[in-house]
């Protein structure tokens, strides 16, 4: 076995740190749930926090590409899939919380919600997109889809927008936080569309 070089050790260490950071909120939530520390309405609290982390991690994922370009750290792309999958992880917890804890499999209510309440329709659509992206995130699928893979994965911007709108449409009057998320997402989309680097450098395949 060849001894790992320092750069590789750093990469592994940074991934471990990232895993811990990304799992932290879920563990903290689990701890809160186990110790009755989630306030008077724990199901609502779980729903809100998992949704928040899904959107937060999704926004961070979108930021990876411009940040690594601006910071001159092309290697950071290796964190993108991990962050995106954690965003999907929290989005799935969020959806399952709604499905199981909140509605307790009340399918008629769930179908009605998804069909008739735009904020739920949009949120569900975002989750479906993330599901498709998560499934096709493996190296095998990247190879199989070739150039279509990148096109497909541009859906992440649509999913993020849908997630932000889902949050905005949910709140009653205090729109500060969803608007912060939406602004960040819109800025990241603009950056992506104008993407100065794509003109200079050839695209990675």
């Amino acid at each position: 076995m060849v001894r790992a070089n320092p750069a590789r050790r750093r990469r592994v260490a940074s991934k471990v740190v990232l895993w811990v950071l990304c799992l932290g909120p879920a563990l903290w939530l689990g701890f809160g749930a186990a110790t009755d520390g989630l306030g008077a309405n724990p199901i609502e609290e779980i729903t809100h926090r998992t949704g928040w982390w899904a959107l937060f991690l999704l926004t961070i994922t979108l930021a990876i590409t411009p940040v690594r370009r601006l910071a001159g750290r092309p290697g950071w792309v290796r964190y993108r899939r991990l962050l995106g999958l954690f965003a999907f992880f929290y989005a799935t917890l969020h959806f399952l919380t709604y499905l199981v804890l909140d509605q307790f499999f009340g399918w008629s209510y769930i179908v009605e919600d998804i069909a008739e309440r735009p904020f739920i329709t949009v949120g569900f659509a975002a989750w479906l997109m993330l599901l498709a992206l998560a499934v096709t995130s493996t190296t095998g699928w990247i190879r199989r889809l070739r150039k279509y893979w990148q096109r497909l994965h541009r859906l992440v911007y649509v999913a993020a927008l849908a997630g932000g709108v889902h949050f905005l449409w949910k709140v009653k009057a205090d729109t500060r936080e969803p608007l912060v998320f939406l602004s960040a997402i819109v800025v990241l989309i603009i950056v992506r569309v104008w993407a100065p680097w794509t003109r200079r450098a050839p695209r990675p395949q």
């Binding site: 209510y109 919600d113 449409w169």
Partner: peptide, 10 residues
């Protein structure tokens, strides 16, 4: 934006 048919009693 949401159903009023049911409620969660804290």
């Amino acid at each position: 934006r949401w159903s009023q048919a049911r409620e969660r009693r804290l």
